[in-house]
Design a binder for these strands. Sequence first.
DNA 1: CGAAAATTTGACATGACTCAACTGGAGTGG
DNA 2: CCACTCCAGTTGAGTCATGTCAAATTTTCG
Lengths: 189, 189
Amino acid sequence: MFEPLLQHISRFVQLTDAEKDLVMQHFTYKRLSKKDFVLSEGDVCAESYFVLQGLLRMYFIKDKGQNQLIQFALENWWITDQTSLDMQKPSIFFIDAVEDTEVAVLSKKSMEELLAAMPQMERYFRLIMQRYVAAVQMRLTYFLDQSAEERYRFFSKLFPGFVQRIPQYMLASYLNITPEVLSKIRAKK
Amino acid sequence: MFEPLLQHISRFVQLTDAEKDLVMQHFTYKRLSKKDFVLSEGDVCAESYFVLQGLLRMYFIKDKGQNQLIQFALENWWITDQTSLDMQKPSIFFIDAVEDTEVAVLSKKSMEELLAAMPQMERYFRLIMQRYVAAVQMRLTYFLDQSAEERYRFFSKLFPGFVQRIPQYMLASYLNITPEVLSKIRAKK
DNA sequence: CGAAAATTTGACATGACTCAACTGGAGTGG
DNA sequence: CCACTCCAGTTGAGTCATGTCAAATTTTCG
C-alpha cells in the first residue's frame, strides 16, 4: 500500500526492513475521491501528504474571487501548506483532489515522533525540502522571464502528457494566465 | 567571527561548546566588497553562503538582457543556487554583494563531512529549508495576486527600512516591475 | 569637479485581461 | 435513451496596466 513511499524514501536513505516497518507505523492511508478536500482556507494545517496515486492541487482565492493554483502534486510528490503547518496559523489555501487519489498522510505530531524515533529520517526530509527549493527557484525563474505563450510551451514540453491529464482552466491558473488567453494560444497552431 | 551563525544554529538545535567548535571547523570566513561575486553564470555552484553581516543578491540575465533579481540574502539568511549545487550543473545565476559583506562559507564537500560527523545537523538544515519553502510559497502567493503597486506597498510594509538600503532598480527587479513604473508609483504619494 | 549611474518624466505601444456571446460535450433525471 | 442543464472551452471586441523608448535631471563616487 505504501510501496511507492518506501521506494521514494529508499532513494535518499537506506533502511532495513525493520526500520521500514517502523517508519510506516507513523503514516496513515487515505483514499480521496475527485474534489475531496484535505485542507480548506481557515484551517490550521496539521498534515503533510505524499501522493501514492493520483493528483492533488493547492490553490487560494484571489481578491477578485478567482482561484489561483499554486502547486500540483503528482505521484511521488509531497504537498502541504508549510507556513500554516510550521506556525500553526490558519491557512489561506485549499488542497483538493483533481482525480481520485490515494495519499500517505503524515501528521505534524507523527512526524515529530518519527524523527525522534529515527533521526536518520531527518536526512530524508532535508533532501525532499532541498529538491523542493530547487524546483521553486526554477519555477520562479521561468515565470519572471517568459510571456504567457512561452510559459505554456515550456510547461508542455517539460511535462508532456501531464497537460492532457488536467482541465485547461487549471493549467491556465497554474501558469497565471486567463483561460481565454490560453485557449487563444493553443488555437495558434 | 561566526557568532551570528552559531546563534542561528542554536535557535534550531542544541549544541555543546565542543560541538560548536566542531561545526565551525567546516566553515570558512569570507569578506566581500560591494560587487564581488561568489557565483557567476556558467559556474558549477559548490558552496552555500550564510550572511553574517551585509547583503547578497542572486539574479540572472533575461532573454532581453536585463537583470532579474530572484532573491536577497540579509543577515542570518542562507543563499545558494540549490539546483546547480545539488546536480552539479552549470548555474544560470549570479550571486554578488550589494554591500560590503561578511559570509560564512560551507562547501558542498564540507557540508557532507559535517553531516557525516554530526548527524544532528541534518535537523538544522531541514528546518532552514522548511522555512525557505514557507517563505517562497508566501512570495509566490502575493506575486500572483497583486498588482505592481500592491507588491511595492506590501514589500515596503513587510520590510520597513530595507527599502532604503537598496537601490530602487534592484527593488524594481525583485518586484518584477520596471524602474520607470516603480518611480511613478512612488511619485504617487 | 566631472563622468557615469540612477532616477524621473512623458509619449506611445502592446500583451494580457474583461466581458459577452456562442459552441460542444458530459452528466443527470425523467 | 432522449432532453436538458451545466460547465469547459472558444472567439471577438474593447480596455487597461505595464512595458518600451527617449530625454531631462539628480545623485554618486572616483
